[in-house]
């Protein structure tokens, strides 16, 4: 491809598509979209070299609102699809996004294995502690006593996942928590995440004004972590455990071996394999 003839889009809006989001007014996901486009513009990544893979749910619609390559797949499997793409096409910058239900419930197995596999990609969970697309059910990050869903009228009675802690124990090499009330901070975090070699996990606290209107108060509860980013998993786990889940920042960063299969010479001939069958 002729790189010289290709203008690099440098404005965030160049990374947006013409499609109008399905999101409700006030939804935090708009800010995630803005943060992503800002990060891509900052990194000056050619649109065609970025692939944005998502699952199913309100937040997973985000791929269609960008102008990079994308895949809006099935519920919970975005990380698997992205892992196949990255395995086959290591040259691409791979972004993955979805909601807390998509990533931690139906896609929970893929999440822990993607952390462990540590392929070079960035995964954003847009966490609003609720299933929005299906009209307000509890997710794996919902508090046990949230009783506003008809599906679990007494609340789930189950303690929620702590996504950052889960990512840490599963082996993620970059773990951050951002907030949609601070899109510039989130964009900076995403720049770091994309530049990090390995699996980068970013939990974006993204309020749902429709089914969790009380989350509009998050802007008064969220604050930055006092400590700097650590590369010590013990320290990171203590920090995550001691926190109420509302502190933001890059919590953990460490270089682990990156999984990238293949890459051998590829000069094999079919004849040499067929000769194995010859008696």
């Amino acid at each position: 491809m002729d790189n010289a003839a290709r203008p690099i889009p440098i404005r965030p809006r160049d990374y947006k598509s013409e499609i109008k989001p399905v999101w409700c007014p006030g939804c935090g996901d708009f800010a995630v979209l803005n943060a992503i486009t800002k990060a891509l513009a900052f990194l000056e990544l050619p649109r065609e070299d970025v692939s944005f893979i998502t699952g199913i749910g309100c937040s997973s619609r985000i791929a269609a609102y960008t102008s990079v390559y994308g895949f809006h797949g099935v519920h919970g499997r975005a990380l698997a699809l992205a892992s196949g793409l990255k395995a086959a096409r290591p040259d691409l910058t791979v972004l993955v996004a979805g909601g807390d239900g998509d990533g931690l419930s139906i896609g929970g197995n893929h999440f822990i294995h993607a952390c462990r596999r540590n392929m070079d990609m960035t995964y954003i969970i847009m966490d609003n502690e609720v299933y929005g697309m299906t009209k307000g059910q509890a997710s794996p990050t919902t508090a046990p006593d949230w009783a506003d869903s008809k599906l679990t009228p007494q609340g789930t009675g189950i303690r929620p996942f702590q996504p950052a802690g889960l990512a840490l124990t599963a082996g993620a090499s970059f773990i951050a928590r951002g907030f949609t009330g601070d899109p510039n901070g989130l964009a900076r975090m995403l720049v770091e995440a994309i530049e990090h070699k390995g699996f980068s996990f970013v939990q974006a606290l993204s309020p749902c004004p429709t089914f969790r209107p009380e989350q509009m108060e998050w802007k008064h509860q969220v604050r930055g972590f006092e400590q700097e980013t650590t590369s010590d998993p013990i320290e990171a786990v203590q920090r995550i455990q001691a926190d109420d889940g509302m502190s933001t920042g890059v919590i953990f960063r460490r270089q682990y071996p990156v999984f990238q299969p293949g890459g051998k010479s590829g000069d094999c001939m079919l004849e040499s394999i067929e000769s194995e069958f010859l008696i």
Partner: peptide, 16 residues
């Protein structure tokens, strides 16, 4: 990690 992942990885690679 499972067959759900296998087939989705295949789709991802083929998309590539």
């Amino acid at each position: 990690e499972d067959e759900l992942a296998s087939i989705n990885m295949v789709i991802g690679a083929s998309y590539g």
